[in-house]
């Protein structure tokens, strides 16, 4: 689906979302009433300091305007912008700030929903899609932490060997199915059905308490140990000294 198709299917009555050099900013009316704020990264744009601060500014502005509508984060990005200038200016702070704004918004009752409809990678993935409460994807989405050629360089294993190993575990190789098995992606939407209806169903679900991604990863077999390790440390930490 193209971005225009996605927005048309999400917002049947139209919307005011604009693509500003790869950054999506705006809002649209929900099928079930109310409005969704929308931020996003389009056209496989890399997320640098200038991009991150515009997105965080939009989230804070939405919070200041008030209301209880969800915040949608649409993502088809590159990785974080890799440049001397971005690191010189403290890119880690800008990306962390964007993630903080999204996490805070969700804690204030503004359900954050990530919709991964294209590519994303590394730091851009963490600061946008992975900072939402509920992350869904469209078929064909291509999340990755690092591409296989780069991974091959670091691990000193050939791409063929990496591809062979990827058959036995979803834990390292790029791709939507692999990320979903670790618990990062809740569901993949059906592009033949109205996205507005699928969004409405998701928003109607009771908000489960806490971050459930490690349990999901355990249930799906992609992360066998994370949920149990976190729970054991939690229990030990609560025991009296």
């Amino acid at each position: 689906m193209t971005l225009d198709d996605i927005l048309a299917s999400l917002f049947l009555e139209g919307h005011d979302i604009r693509n500003n050099d790869g950054l999506l900013l705006g809002s649209g009316p929900l099928k079930g009433g109310g409005r969704a704020e929308v931020i996003g990264v389009a056209d496989r744009t890399a997320v640098g300091v200038d991009d991150a601060i515009r997105l965080s500014g939009q989230v804070l502005a939405a919070l200041e305007r008030g209301g209880d509508g969800p915040i949608l984060v649409l993502v088809d990005s590159d990785s974080q912008r890799m440049s001397k200038r971005d690191e010189l200016l403290g890119l880690n702070e800008f990306l962390a700030h964007l993630a903080k704004c999204l996490i805070y918004a969700d804690m204030q009752g503004r359900h954050t929903v990530g919709l991964l409809y294209g590519h994303t990678a590394a730091g851009a993935f963490i600061a946008t899609a992975l900072a939402t409460r509920t992350l869904v994807a469209l078929p064909g989405a291509e999340p990755e932490v690092m591409d296989l050629p780069s991974m091959s360089k670091v691990t000193k294993l050939s791409i063929e060997v990496l591809k062979e190993k990827a058959k036995s575990t979803p834990v390292f190789a790029p791709g939507l199915d692999n990320l979903a098995q670790t618990g990062a992606v809740l569901a993949t939407w059906d592009e033949k059905i109205s996205l507005a209806d699928q969004l409405q169903a998701l928003l109607g679900n009771d908000r489960q308490g806490g971050d459930q991604r490690d349990r999901l990863g355990k249930a799906r077999g992609g992360r066998p140990k994370a949920a149990d390790m976190a729970e054991r440390v939690y229990d030990l930490a609560l025991q009296p000294e």
Partner: peptide
Amino acid sequence: ANAGELAIAE
């Protein structure tokens, strides 16, 4: 990588 990336988000 996938488990590590998600761990950072968590």
